Amino acid sequence: MKIIKQIGIFFTVCWLSQIVAAYLPFSFPSSVIGMILLFICLLTGILKIEHVQEKADFLMENMAFFFVPAGVSVMNYFDILKSTLVPFLIICIVSTIITFAATAYSVQFVIKLMNRRKK
Rank of each mutant, 00 (worst) to 15 (best):
M1S: 12
K2Y: 04
K2L: 07
I3F: 07
I7P: 01
F10C: 03
T12I: 07
V13G: 04
W15M: 11
L16H: 00
L16T: 02
Q18V: 04
Q18M: 10
V20P: 05
V20R: 07
Y23M: 14
L24F: 08
P29Q: 06
P29I: 05
I33G: 01
M35P: 01
I36T: 12
L37W: 06
L37V: 09
L37I: 15
L43M: 14
G45Q: 04
L47A: 01
H51S: 10
E54L: 08
E54F: 04
K55T: 12
K55P: 00
A56H: 00
L59S: 09
M60P: 01
M60R: 14
N62A: 04
N62E: 02
A64Q: 04
F66H: 06
F66N: 07
P69M: 01
P69Y: 02
P69G: 04
A70C: 07
G71H: 02
G71Q: 04
V72P: 00
V74E: 05
M75C: 13
M75A: 15
Y77T: 13
F78I: 15
D79F: 14
I80E: 15
L81G: 12
K82S: 15
S83E: 15
T84K: 13
L85G: 03
L85S: 11
P87Y: 07
F88K: 07
I91M: 08
I91C: 07
S95M: 08
F100I: 11
F100A: 04
F100N: 07
F100Y: 06
F100D: 02
A101W: 11
A101N: 07
A102P: 00
A102H: 00
A104I: 14
Q108R: 15
Q108W: 12
L113C: 13
L113I: 10
M114T: 14
N115V: 12
R116N: 15
R117T: 08
K118N: 12
K118E: 13
